[in-house]
Design a protein around this nucleic acid. Sequence first.
DNA 1: TTATATTGTGTCATATTGACAAAATAACAA
DNA 2: TTGTTATTTTGTCAATATGACACAATATAA
Lengths: 259, 259
Amino acid sequence: MDVQKKNVLGDMLFGGAELFLPSVSVDCVIFGFHAGELKVLLLKGKHDPKWALPGGFIYQDENVEEAASRVLQERTQLTGIFLRQFHLFGDVKRTEQKHARRWLEEAGVEDPDSHWIMQRFVTIGYYALVEFEKVNPVPDEYSSECDWHNVLELRNLILDHKQIIEKGLESLRLHLNFQPIGLNLLPKEFPLKDLQLIYETILGKKLDRSNFQRKILSYGILDRKEKQFSGGSHRAPYLYSFNKKKYFKALQEGLNKEW
Amino acid sequence: MDVQKKNVLGDMLFGGAELFLPSVSVDCVIFGFHAGELKVLLLKGKHDPKWALPGGFIYQDENVEEAASRVLQERTQLTGIFLRQFHLFGDVKRTEQKHARRWLEEAGVEDPDSHWIMQRFVTIGYYALVEFEKVNPVPDEYSSECDWHNVLELRNLILDHKQIIEKGLESLRLHLNFQPIGLNLLPKEFPLKDLQLIYETILGKKLDRSNFQRKILSYGILDRKEKQFSGGSHRAPYLYSFNKKKYFKALQEGLNKEW
DNA sequence: TTATATTGTGTCATATTGACAAAATAACAA
DNA sequence: TTGTTATTTTGTCAATATGACACAATATAA
């Protein structure tokens, strides 16, 4: 699947019914960290004052996973990012398409009410964790803005996108118990404090520094480097990096096996 | 949604495109326990020698969750069963519809190749845990047999249904760490040994009797009753029942919070 | 040189887990 | 009636994990 060759907007407006899998969309909850806050990347529609998750439709010749990956890539320019399916949202009432109708009208589509995009859709939620600084948020063709929003202060979202984000965060919190995170979230080398801050931000609570280090090191997915120039007026911390081999093994097999 | 009034077969053959949500199906992995084995309920097609999961399509006016529930109910006659979404299977190649084509032909559908059911489908996997003895497996209109199969000896399944079952089992094993199970799986009163056997069967390994009881009781979801007539020539075990209030609270909030 | 902030490391009481053993008891056989 | 057998209830104990906290080390700035 060659992502670059796709002209998603044109396909959606005029070729949709044949090119895309009907009834199904993907939405990506892209998490990033900044200033001690957990952020999520949102788009503001040109013809709608509300914010929406980066999402899209699935080409007939495209795996759902690939579609999610394409959406993530289009919006962040990042590749190789860990993306995880967490839930399908399938209620009848979740899609009321007022804004889509207006949007089709203005785009010059005849008889917008019978356009395929006005039909009921179910959507598959994926979440990703990305390095905030590496992302240059770019709106797509039908959006006016693309920006980070604090995950705890979500207002004016379309449809059920607030619930999708909340479910995504809930899933992420659960997955933290048996899945390593951080690989595409931090620079190659980082102090443990930074990783701890990520955990604290996701969980929404403070963790004991000493106990956190003991636990995270016990997973055996980190390699300790030499000290850094801390920059701060205090003892310089060690730098760590993820041992990718062990990291992916842990992703595969899980961190804890309680039973 | 009135389940009884649906004529699924007729709808599928002749009304499909309008009545159902296109491209999406649900499949239920229905687990039961018998003779120390974990079983899954499968259907054998009338026009296909292969076995399939109980599954179906989603009516336009029906939530996905309701569709899964309807499928479960139709096949087992059971209501109020815990059903849990675990994964969406969305690869392009997952649906090759040779058997569907033959099936449409024999059902008298003209031009089967362009029938909506021949198109690509993604499917949402749900799993359920049911009391084996309470289920009277009934084939649907387009199946010749409905029977339990050992989850470790799956042969001749259509499409990716073997992978779906395996993923469902894997999910169930994971969920065991933070989710109570057993409520619709055991009689109202039961000895702890029976619950332990269920855990052992799901996990595929033996557990220490004493430690299992300590752990399961620590969840605080069981009420101890008076002793039973054991029937065996040995000390009679206590009977337990699930405290529904606490059980559902645990379902909601989770059993363990590691972080 | 000293103050300050933050890290590396260690301690310790408590809780949890895994492995196992002793006592209790229902049914059966002699 | 009594002993045997199987399985349960209950308990023990060492090993490990966790939570709370203490103290020494050290990079920068005053």
